[in-house]
Amino acid sequence: MFISSQNPPPSFKDFTLVLPAVAVGNVGQLAVDLIVSTLNMSRVGYIHTDCLIPMTGNNPYTTCKDDAEELHTPAEVYTAAGLKTAVLQIRAPIIQTKSKKFRQLLVSWIKASGFSRTVVLSSSHAYQRDDQQLKGTPLRYLVTPALLKVSAVALEELGWREMERVAAFPGLTDADTDPRLHVPGGGITKGLYMDSCAADLPLAVLLLFCSEGDNIPDAFTLVNHLNDWLHLLDNPSQKPNKWKIPTSWSLLFGNGIPPALF
């Protein structure tokens, strides 16, 4: 459930919500980190739920000593009021048996808050692509009918590729089995998309085929792709260093080298 950290609670009416799906390589979460730290967004509340594994730490976006000691929780909502944009950052894995409950919680919160549209940043296993998916860009999108109604023109102009439906049994031509949506390694992506279609929510999924490893370049690719549509940064440049890397990304590959080694 959403708990506001402000008084009075914030209004999300007509805001755009961006949230990650906990998926391969954590690309969506890294991209959201870039948005929060670059736009200097402020925290307005928490999603406090038993569906996420508890974790906590000090301010991941700290820039100076004064704001370093600030506790942060597994799921928090940030806003940039001027841009009418809100972000939900999810920092912990979803407890497997509770993923359905978590999806329902998200859908009902999004509905109740009155967001004008929702964008899910996600990723999918690169090694499970079929032949047609191997060609060209690794970026794909999905939109619900409710969002297509209002954003069809914008999406057409962008010239993006929609996520392909793949055959249930590749190589077999069976009239009975329709091609289906398949997002391997995408966590709740497919479920959330399906639920949103059913609930008539305006929602889009932006995803990237990738493998697990150093996924920082993937995060830049995805966030730049999102920026082409939402124009979060005034000066949309393809240079990755336009985005500000948060402090919490340091030491991703462990501690310093022991000097005694040499």
Partner: peptide, 15 residues
């Protein structure tokens, strides 16, 4: 210090 985090029961209590 960042990037250190706490997990488990202490994290649940802090949250």
């Amino acid at each position: 210090e960042q990037p250190n985090i706490i997990t488990g029961l202490p994290a649940a209590v802090l949250n």
